[in-house]
Simulated scan of single mutants.
Amino acid sequence: MTQAALSNAATPLLDTDVLRTFVAIAECGSFTRAARQVFRTPSALSMQIKRLEETLGQALFVREARQVRLTPEGEVLLGYGRRLLSLNEEAVTQFLAPKVAGRLGFGTTDDVGSRILPGVLAQFARSHPAVQVDVVVGSSREMLARLDAGELDLVLVTAGNPGQEARGEIVHSEPLVWVGREGGVAAQRSPLPVALAHQGCAWRGMALEALNRAGISFRIAYTCEHCAGQEAAMLADLAVSPFPQSLVRPPLRRIDPDQLPALGEYQLTLVKRTGLNQAGETLVGHVMAAFRHY
């Protein structure tokens, strides 16, 4: 027998069914809850994990009175397990799933694209490789108009824009905060220089209402349809701007909440056209899952 054959014979293979059990227990934090999820008894799950621990020569869970938690070795395996299960699903789908073709039009505002699109599009491409996705970036008003005109199939827009009716499903909510450059002086200037989107943007309305309510003197120093323009003004320390908390990255920083008035929460809404096909519903699912883990 060759050295390669000996090496292969000595390396155990991880069973997909056992990995699915392991991931379920890790995510549920309980053998009992995981057992209901995978339709087995807790004792059957316990035996599977015992064999898996013996195979790997490592304890994977710390068993406590009311829950179980991963050991450091279990945390490492969880990452591998999720990737292996995903790859297994991808391989099976490639051969068994119907070959869906066509195109989908997906509209989004520019603040969303950098956050979830790479992962969402990668997942969708694995399950629907023959479907062309046309991504359009623009204002919420423009995206909704193009959806209603039949040019787009689903759109992610900011909720609460002036004159915009409530539509779709809210998929994300987070604080809108005042942001400026780290070590900058724009926030100390009077009147306060602010960089805002054009009229009709919820961020603009929330910022102006907060400043007026607090009686703070300000001037609109810069306007731009896209948040990249506001970011440029902040990076140059020429203005401060309302920005989603999750988008704040060095050298930008959140301004002390005691220095400027609170802005409140901003929300993203997913709106889809009537009669969206199966491929479109799959893309919707990926988008919603991305925000649940964001």
Rank of each mutant, 00 (worst) to 15 (best):
Met1Gln: 15
Met1Arg: 15
Thr2Asn: 12
Ala4Pro: 01
Ala5Leu: 06
Ala5Phe: 01
Ala9His: 13
Thr11Tyr: 06
Asp15Trp: 00
Arg20Asp: 15
Arg20Cys: 14
Phe22Glu: 00
Phe31Gly: 00
Arg33Gln: 12
Phe39Gln: 15
Arg40Val: 14
Thr41Asn: 05
Met47His: 15
Glu54Cys: 11
Leu56Glu: 09
Ala59Trp: 11
Leu60Asp: 09
Arg63Ser: 13
Arg66Thr: 15
Leu70Tyr: 14
Thr71Trp: 04
Glu75Pro: 09
Leu77Phe: 01
Leu78Gln: 01
Leu87Arg: 15
Glu90Cys: 07
Ala91His: 11
Ala91Ile: 14
Ala91Lys: 12
Lys99Asn: 12
Gly105Asp: 10
Thr109Leu: 04
Asp110Leu: 10
Gly113Lys: 03
Arg115Asn: 06
Pro118Cys: 01
Ala122Asn: 14
Ala125Val: 06
Arg126Asn: 09
Val131Lys: 08
Val133Trp: 05
Val136Gln: 05
Ser139Ala: 12
Arg146Gln: 13
Ala149Asn: 01
Asp153Met: 06
Leu154Ala: 06
Val155Arg: 03
Val157Phe: 01
Ala159Trp: 01
Gly160Asp: 06
Asn161Val: 12
Gln164Trp: 05
Gln164Asp: 10
Gly168Pro: 11
Leu176Asn: 08
Gly180Tyr: 03
Arg181Asn: 05
Gly183Gln: 07
Pro191Lys: 02
Ala195Gln: 02
Leu196Lys: 14
Ala202Pro: 03
Ala202Lys: 04
Gly215His: 02
Phe218Trp: 07
Arg219Leu: 05
Ala221His: 00
Glu225His: 07
Ala232Ser: 12
Leu235Tyr: 06
Leu235Arg: 12
Leu238Trp: 01
Ser246Arg: 15
Ser246Asn: 05
Arg249Cys: 11
Leu252Ser: 02
Leu252Asn: 00
Asp258Arg: 03
Gln259Val: 04
Ala262Cys: 04
Glu265Arg: 04
Lys272His: 10
Glu281Ser: 08
His286Thr: 03
Val287Ile: 12
Met288Glu: 09
Ala290Cys: 02
